[in-house]
Design a protein around this nucleic acid. Sequence first.
DNA 1: GCCAACGTTGGC
DNA 2: GCCAACGTTGGC
Length: 169
Amino acid sequence: MHDAIVRPMVKKLWLMKSEPDVYGIDELAAKKRGTWEGVRNYQARNYLREMAEGDLFLFHHSNAKPSGVVGIGSIVRTAYTDPFQFDPKSEYYDPKSPKDAPRWSAVDVGFVEKFRETISLETMKADPELEGMIILARGTRLSVTPVEPTHFERILRLAKGKTRLSRSG
DNA sequence: GCCAACGTTGGC
DNA sequence: GCCAACGTTGGC
């Protein structure tokens, strides 16, 4: 497509949190593709709506041992109406969401990579190069956040370091 | 399981 | 439209 050639490819980078008991990297790795539904926070939703096909995200496990970044995913379908908001049986049901102007969005995600080891919050907090990451700010509960390219690359570097270590040792 | 931090709700 | 009460998130 002419557009694709002319338009510069600008990938945005994100971090998305999930509890592994609810939806984890292993499930995405097994199925290769999944739906990121159930976001019920307006700011997080707005970030979902900014996502483009091909964007990459750090897959973060929360309420885990340890919590931290466990791998990489990609956006394979941009934001669409999260069907669970209209399902009374779903825990994500939102009776106040207007049918003609749905409140909540979902995106579809693809598996890219699972790290051999979790890059734990402890590791991330101790790393000066990761200073300023939203996830590391005190009291941040936002489940979808943008990530600076330098931070994203640093995480990848840490992950590769761990890979090398675990292979040689 | 505790609890700090934060978002949302609803009374006024 | 303020703000106290309540619910939720999520690290620890």
